[in-house]
């Protein structure tokens, strides 16, 4: 049985199996549920900019803005992969990649997680964890890294 975990594919496969079963269960359950009809006119896709005007009441980004941020994120990911294959970058590859990842990170946190618009208490709590983790583990990597190599 210990071999089960020796094959990591199964390690990740097991949760997938559970997800699949849950999905199947859900589908069966759902077939008994009465269909809720939306009052909105039919239409599948959410075209950017087609959001009803009421959707802007809360000061957060609109759906169109979310999509635009998503496009920026996708572009940065593309850039990361591109940069990765530019061998000429040499020593500055690491800082460039870290800067790109940080940009993505910050975009998601500020816009998708609303920290730009939300109560500062939330940013404080989250940043506390991030800064603490960063500070503590930098010290670990420096001191332990130096003492064992």
């Amino acid at each position: 049985m210990k071999d089960f975990f020796e094959n990591p594919a199964l390690l990740i496969g097991a949760p997938l199996l559970v997800v699949g079963l849950a999905g199947a269960m859900i589908a069966i359950l759902a077939s008994f549920a009465p269909e809720q009809r939306s009052l909105e006119p039919a239409g599948l896709g959410l075209g950017p900019g087609k959001a009803p005007p009421g959707g802007q009441a809360h000061g957060g980004p609109s759906a169109a803005e979310y999509v635009n941020i998503g496009l920026v994120l996708a572009a940065i990911t593309g850039l990361e992969v591109g940069v990765y294959y530019v061998t000429a970058l040499g020593n500055i590859l690491v800082p460039v990649l870290i800067a790109l990842a940080a940009t993505k990170f910050i975009l998601v946190v500020l816009f998708f997680m609303h920290l730009k618009f939300d109560n500062r208490l939330f940013s404080t709590m989250f940043t506390a964890g991030l800064v603490l983790a960063f500070a503590v583990f930098t010290v670990v990597l420096v001191t332990l890294g130096a003492s064992i190599t």
Partner: peptide, 12 residues
């Protein structure tokens, strides 16, 4: 990354 976009569209 794109799943994050669709998540945020669900919220909107």
């Amino acid at each position: 990354l794109m799943s994050s976009v669709s998540m945020v569209l669900a919220l909107a």
